[in-house]
Structures are given as structure tokens and as C-alpha cells.
Nucleic acid binder design. Sequence first.
DNA 1: GTGAAAGCGCTAACAT
DNA 2: ATGTTAGCGCTTTCAC
Lengths: 336, 336
Amino acid sequence: MTIYDISKKAGVSIATVSRVLNGSDKVRPATRKKVMDIIEKYDYTPNAFARGMGLHSVQTIGILCADSSDLFLAKAVYYLEQELQSNGYESLLCCTGYNLDIKKNYLNLILSKKVDGIILVGSNFIGTNEEENQYIKDVSAQVPIMLLNASFDYPNVYSTLCDDYTSMFEATVSMLDAGIEDILYLYNSNSYSGVKKLGGFRAAMEAHSVPDYEKRILFYEGDPQQMDDVANYLERLSKKKLSFHGVIASEDPLAIGAMKYARRQGLCVPEDLSVIGYNNSMLTTCCTPELTSVDNRLETQTHQLVQTLLGVLQGEEMPKKSIFSGKLIKRGTTLF
Amino acid sequence: MTIYDISKKAGVSIATVSRVLNGSDKVRPATRKKVMDIIEKYDYTPNAFARGMGLHSVQTIGILCADSSDLFLAKAVYYLEQELQSNGYESLLCCTGYNLDIKKNYLNLILSKKVDGIILVGSNFIGTNEEENQYIKDVSAQVPIMLLNASFDYPNVYSTLCDDYTSMFEATVSMLDAGIEDILYLYNSNSYSGVKKLGGFRAAMEAHSVPDYEKRILFYEGDPQQMDDVANYLERLSKKKLSFHGVIASEDPLAIGAMKYARRQGLCVPEDLSVIGYNNSMLTTCCTPELTSVDNRLETQTHQLVQTLLGVLQGEEMPKKSIFSGKLIKRGTTLF
DNA sequence: GTGAAAGCGCTAACAT
DNA sequence: ATGTTAGCGCTTTCAC
């Protein structure tokens, strides 16, 4: 069923059908109804490809994320999808994995679909050196690039993020103020936000003149979602006489791993060990005691990101960078 | 930059460029190289819309799921995406929400993109009466429909699922055999698999001649992910003198809610209350004790689904229905 | 207000 | 092995 079939059945030209389809006001109501009836009767839907060819925009946004099964990313994608949808945009999702070359390919692939803009979800799309980020510069020449939870200063690139540095700084200070100085910092990513968080932690330790804190900063290599493995890792560590009475993790699952470790060691949380997670995911309320965690206001972020994008697409001047402060949600794994 | 520009610069016809682009073997290597060089030099990417118009297939599969932030669905989507990708297919994801009309719209929308097949993730796409499922019949006339975790017998509709009936039957029997008869069955969906699970539970109760079990079958109306609310719900219930020493839930979060309830009441899990969840999600290892749960072999399912789809697309005759048995993963919330 | 006709960029059948 | 050309289904001038 094509526009020709419909026009024939309705006794009008294809131009008129097209006008009805696109809501032009230059169609007599009677004609419109006649055409609409046929369209509905035959359940006709215009071919998106043919349509996209003529059109400049097809009201579609490309969303790239490394792993849609990650709790944080999945939620972000969901919010974005909903927000875009309610603004009349469709979204095209690609899960790229964490490999740089594959990410590049996907970016080009999604670009060839004539998307109006691209959202990169998660800070893992931004590398630390210029060369790594070249592919973003290239693409930004064609469509606006929106970064969620990352920042990159370049024309036509817009960033929306949580102030992870300050959030982590404050979370750390809370723990220090509670008298815990031997804090283990557990992280698993050197992404943009990963670096910021670590920076915040270090700054807090410096500000409190904690001696020798670097030895308690640990990069966890494995899959953080395997919380038992995280616990194993910490057990091995404690045998090496590295003592700690607090754990701050860059992600909730790592924090849960620390809680598992504590349980195995017969340590009480929070009396013997305080734990703070990050992301305020649903995991925080699954464990006992419930996990104190930093909320990075994901929903606020996604909302703002889409608003900025819509503005940009309408040619308005929009802020290049929107930063929201995070918030420590105090639950049962901390005494303060 | 179009195929015409490239052909001009390379001094060949557009047909030759097209052949190079599509990897035809009827191009002399020298010609191919000449064209490729130009393509790379100008960083040319063919227009996907123009391409899609000519082509019959664009190697794209539409994936519909109600809510990509649901732990189970997110994981399913992820596996599917990876599997399709490694077989040379792209995927187009839409999150539809749970409203029937919106789901229908999305189906049509995704169809208009000329996808080669459509995967409906989660049993909430299949209703209990014929009329609800009409939209699936309509679409199946055009492309194969793959159902994950649901079943619907109709031409060109293929189902891949876990034998939820038997899995739930066996899980229930395990608990009954352990001497617990007053089991609370907590569920929140009357979807295809929801109905199967409940059926399995009932059958087990019948088989053990448990009296009066219907009064302990409870439909939870709220959002199961809000586990505190689930606990509240159960507290209200226990005040109404409904006693139970076991909880079987149709989803892990509901089971976690039950564990929260137990803790508030000062009940020990599993000594005073046994709990079984469903889906074997990552939540099962977040709580204490860890949650016994039914594993529905999601990865096996998604693998099989994609294999079946690929077969169908190649015109092979494939099984209309693939059923895998689930498995009870015993952890700390049960004594058996 | 409506129709005729010229593209949009590509694929594929056909011709050479 | 390569070129020519007719569509694919739609949008959008430009006439009427």
C-alpha cells in the first residue's frame, strides 16, 4: 500500500494525500476526511525510508550507550526515551560495548540514518586524551552531540552532568567528620566521571590531612556486577594487612561487594565498617542495612539534556554545560 | 556527498560505486581500490534512507519492550542486541510502556521502517483474549514476530520461553516438601508468563491437597520495584491475621519486599519465613541472606530466539515454539 | 485547494 | 567488468 494506492482510492492526487499525511492546512476539511477514511480503512502507514529521503529531518535522535543492562545506563536510556517520545522524537538505540573502535563505527552508522542529534550516555565515551575524542569532534560537525554524565568542551557538543567531584568530596568529608580516616576507595573506571569522583575523594583526604591515603585507593579490574568477586578481592586484600574502617565506592555494586566482605569477616556494618555507594540505584534498598549512596539526580539530568537538545534543534542558543549537584542519601551503612 | 559525486571523482559509473559499496565480486580489484580511495578520502557514507528504499531488507530487527529499565527486560534486550549484532543485524529499540494502544502504535511505527522481523520482549505483549492479540496477527502478515518469554500460536509468530508453569510447580513443591504449607503467592502481572506461573503454583498446591490456599494468592497492584511499599503491603496484610511461613514471588523485587517485611517483623529468614523469587536477577545476591530464585535461562532463550529468527529469514522451516526448563537456584532464603 | 512533475540517493535489471 | 536506466515512495515546488 503506497501513497499512489491511497490517492487512487480517494480520487485525489498523491500531493493531496501527502498534504493530509503531513497535516498541511491547505486541504479542504471534506477532502481531508475523504483521504483519512481511506488511510484508516486500509491501515496505511507511509514508508519511512521514502519519507526520510525527501525530508531533512525525520525527528529521530540516536542514543548510544555502552551496555543497556547496566543499572545506571538502562535507567538513563529509559528516561531519555520517554522524554524524547513525549516531545515527538523517536529514538534509535545502539549498545556499543566499551571498545573504542566499535563505538566509532556505531557513531557513523547511526549518523547515516540522518538522526537529528546524538546522545552519548555515560562518561565512557569521553577519553582522557585528545586523540581518543577526535571521533566526537568529527561527528559534531554534522549533528549536535549531547553528553550525559560527561563533559567535553567543543562546538556543538553539549554536556549534562552531575558534579561528581563535589559530591564525592562531600561524601568523603561526611565520613571523615564521623571520625573514620582509613577509608578504602574502590573504583573501576577511569572515565570522565570516574576521574572526577576520585579527584573529589583525594581532595577531601588532603583537606583533612589524612596521611598515606593513596595506598587505600584501589582500582578493581573485574566486573563490578559480580559482587561476590568483589568480596573475594577485598578478602585477599585484608590478608595483606591493609586495614580500613570505611569504604567509598564509585558504584553501588562495588559497595555491595564490600558489605559482603564485611559479613564474611564477621564485621558489623556500619559499626565496624562504614560503606558509601554511588548512583543511588535500586540495589541500595535491597541490602541490609540499606546502602548510603550518592544520588546523581539522573532524572533531572535527562530532562535537562532533552530540553537543551530541543532548544539546539530549534536554533536557540543553549547552555553548553549543565551541572547538577548530587546528594548523599543517608541510609543504614553509615553512622552519620 | 552522494554516489554521483563519488562516481564522478573516481571516473566510473554510479553502478560501479554501488557495487563496491555492496561488496559485489564483479568489480576488478583495481577499480575497487580506486573507488574505495575516493570514498575514504571524502569520508562518504551512503544515505540509509535512499538505500532502504531500493532494498528489500536493511538487515534490521525491531525490538519492542515495555520498560528497558526493568532488570529482566534490560538484560534480555542487551543479549538480543549483542546476538543480532554478531549476526550482522542492527536493532531498533522502542520502549512502549504497558499501554495497549501505545504498543500498537509502536508496532506500526517500527514496521514502517521496513524491519526484517520484530521481537517482542516480555510476556506483557500477549493478552488473554483474542481481541487483544489482533494487532499481532495483523503485523505477522508482514514480518515474522518473535516472542520472548511468551507464546502465541499463529502463522509467522515464533515463541521462545521458559517453562514457567513447571518451574513454578517445582519451586512450590520444594517448599511444600520442606513442610511449609501456608505459602503466600505474591504476583503482579497477568501476562502470559504471569498466568503460567500462577498455574504452576496452584497445581502444586492441589497436588499436595493444601486446604484453602486461594486466600494466600495475592495480586500486588503497586510498582514491584518499590520494595518498601511491598513490605508495607505485607505488614498491613499480617495485621489482618493472614499467617504464612513461606513466600513465593513472581519476581525477585517482590521477594525482596517480603524479606524486608520479615526483618521489620523480627522474623528470621529462612527459619521463620522461607522466600523464593523468580528471574534469578542480580538482586538475588544483593540481599542477606541471598535469595533463592528461579533461573529462567535468559541467555539460552535469547540465543535460541535469534537463531530461530535467522533461520526464518533465510526461509528455513523453524520450530514455532522453543521451551526451556527453568531451574531453582537454591540460596539462603530457603531451608531445603 | 488541488494536481502534475521534478527530484531525493540508491539498487538492480538489463545492456554492452 | 562496467555503464545505462528504470524504478523505490515520498515531499515539494510550480502551475492551474
